[in-house]
């Protein structure tokens, strides 16, 4: 989903540009000296790899197809910062040399498709992989969820941007349903492919998977402790609840989000008072009791909650282990 120019107003696109630029700046600082020393060719080849893999269209339900975003895959393989840089470069090149995705919308696209996917994917992956048993099957489960959640998070980021400064007057709820609905399905594909690809690398060159570089997988493949099983179950449960929470509003309708949006125009009530293109204040004040915004917030909170719970579980577990 490359946002073209004109979809989102100037203020929001510029704001996203600033956020994306600081995200890239942070990534550059984090990768730091090590990057310029030896990792430039690796990052470049990974970017080429992601570009190639993005051509992979996979069938989703109801005749639609999605393609891999690759953000969480890059993050798991290279670490979140280098992964985000590699995907950002892909998006830059697509915009400048292939006219794919807007020029002024570059900030939006880098934010949604590189930074959000890489950081959310990495966060989910690391949270899970620390609490799951140290087995490659667990790494694959973590990769799958990281891939799936990162795509949904990316589509949510778009919905938030549309709420802040969307042009064209589509009702926010319709945008939410279409974007998050379709991307929940695409997310499943992304998750499965991410998991299988990570699994394939893990089988041959486990040293290349940055996300497990500190885990010493083979040695730790012993029986999991009762505590880690408990944590696994809790995290899995919370993730599932969050996913259901997210997908439920869409799943209740027609599985094909866009088509449903096109047919069903019956929910047009409250959005007049919701000036699209309005500033953040509007969104906050008049938004809470407004159904569309409520749904978006709910979705955002769902993903955020998963993330936070995973992190807390991981932190507790790490403390206990080191104690």
């Amino acid at each position: 989903m490359h946002i073209p120019d004109g979809f989102i107003n100037v203020a929001t696109a510029a704001g996203a540009g600033v956020v994306a630029a600081s995200g890239l700046g942070a990534s550059l600082r984090r990768t730091g000296r090590d990057l310029s020393e030896r990792q430039i060719p690796f990052a470049g080849l990974t970017a080429a790899f992601i570009f190639a893999v993005q051509m992979l269209n996979f069938p989703v339900a109801a005749g639609t197809s999605g393609h891999l975003l690759g953000g969480s895959l890059a993050a798991i393989l290279l670490g979140p910062w280098l992964g985000a840089l590699a995907v950002s470069v892909v998006i830059f090149v697509q915009a400048l040399m292939f006219a794919d995705g807007g020029i002024f919308a570059l900030g939006l696209n880098v934010l949604n498709m590189a930074l959000v996917t890489a950081l959310v994917g990495w966060g989910v992956f690391r949270s899970l992989v620390k609490v799951l048993p140290r087995k490659s099957s667990a790494v694959m489960i973590a990769s799958m969820l990281a891939g799936a959640i990162s795509v949904v998070a990316s589509s949510l980021a778009f919905v938030v941007q549309y709420a802040l400064g969307g042009e064209g007057g589509a009702p926010l709820r319709a945008v939410f349903q279409a974007m998050v609905g379709v991307h929940s399905l695409i997310g499943i594909g992304e998750g499965v492919i991410t998991a299988l690809a990570v699994g394939a690398v893990l089988a041959v060159r486990p040293d290349l998977v940055k996300g497990v570089s500190d885990l010493e997988l083979p040695r730790l493949a012993t029986a999991p402790s009762r505590r880690s099983i408990f944590a696994f179950v809790t995290t899995g449960l919370v993730t599932a609840v969050a996913l259901v929470f997210l997908v439920a509003p869409i799943a209740s309708g027609d599985p094909d989000g866009l088509e449903r949006v096109a047919i069903d125009t019956g929910f047009i009530e409250s959005a007049q008072e919701h000036p699209l293109g309005g500033p953040l204040a509007d969104y906050g004040v008049s938004g809470i009791d407004n159904e569309e915004t409520g749904t978006v917030l709910a979705g955002a909170i769902g993903v955020g909650a998963t993330f936070v719970v995973g992190l807390i579980a991981a932190t507790i577990l790490r403390r206990r282990r080191s104690a």
């Binding site: 030896r38 060719p41 690796f42 470049g44 080849l45 990974t46 080429a48 790899f49 190639a52 893999v53 992979l56 996979f58 069938p59 891999l68 393989l77 499943i188 594909g189 499965v192 492919i193 998991a195 299988l196 690809a197 990570v198 699994g199 394939a200 690398v201 041959v204 060159r205 290349l208």
Partner: peptide
């Protein structure tokens, strides 16, 4: 021939193999 979700696996595994090849080329380029 990919027809449905059940057919993803070979494609994904080939993507994994492609990453390994890309990374190893990165080592040689370095």
């Amino acid at each position: 021939q990919a027809r449905s979700a059940l057919d993803w696996k070979p494609v994904a595994v080939s993507a994994g193999a492609l990453f390994i090849r890309s990374f190893e080329r990165g080592e040689r380029v370095y």
